[in-house]
Design a protein around this nucleic acid. Structure first.
Length: 151
DNA sequence: AAGGTTTTCAACCGCAAATTT
DNA sequence: AAAATTTGCGGTTGAAAACCT
């Protein structure tokens, strides 16, 4: 509504920006991002503020590598739900959709890479498409919705 | 030591869904 | 009710870190 024709910053967040954001979130809560972006004086969009908060600053987030158990859970849940990162993340306390998505991509690459290695160097008659889409649909859409003890 | 290559992962974008006016 | 604004999602990117050679 109040449109500020203010130049927006982009790229990595600085520590000062983080502090500032934390302060304003503590003041106003983790919502009304657009409003918060303006009133805080941060030269960031509301969207950017939200992202920074939910993916990094939010208390209770685990940082660093996922444990093998977590990784396994991701695999499992992905096999029912596909790329519904947000939904998957809800089952992994302290982990974000973004993080999980990143993990998945990394894994994908690793698989593609490995595959390249053990398949015969000279003539591989397969090609790569569809390699990793494990065909999970033996369990039909019944698990779709979240609440209710699934998995 | 240095410069080129690969990997990582935080942050961007566009669109969709939700909420507000 | 409908238009406008805000929030949330998932795919994708690129700068910096890590890894060669």
């Amino acid at each position: 509504m109040i449109k500020m024709k203010e130049e927006k910053r982009k790229g990595a967040w600085t520590e000062e920006e983080d502090k500032q954001l934390e302060w304003y979130v503590s003041l106003f809560g983790e919502r009304r991002w657009d409003f918060l972006a303006q009133v805080s004086g941060l030269k960031r969009s509301g969207k950017s503020c939200r992202l920074r908060w939910v993916n990094y600053l939010h208390p209770g987030l685990k940082h660093g590598r996922m444990s093998p158990q977590e990784e396994q859970l991701v695999l499992q849940l992905h096999s029912y739900w596909g790329n519904r990162w947000s939904q998957i993340a809800r089952k992994l306390p302290g982990r974000t959709d973004n993080e999980i998505k990143n993990y998945w991509r990394t894994r994908m690459r690793k698989i593609a890479q490995e595959r390249k290695m053990n398949s015969s160097p000279a003539l591989s008659s397969y090609n790569d498409t569809n390699f990793y889409f494990n065909e999970p649909q033996s369990r039909t859409e019944r698990e779709e919705e979240e609440e209710g003890g699934n998995y």
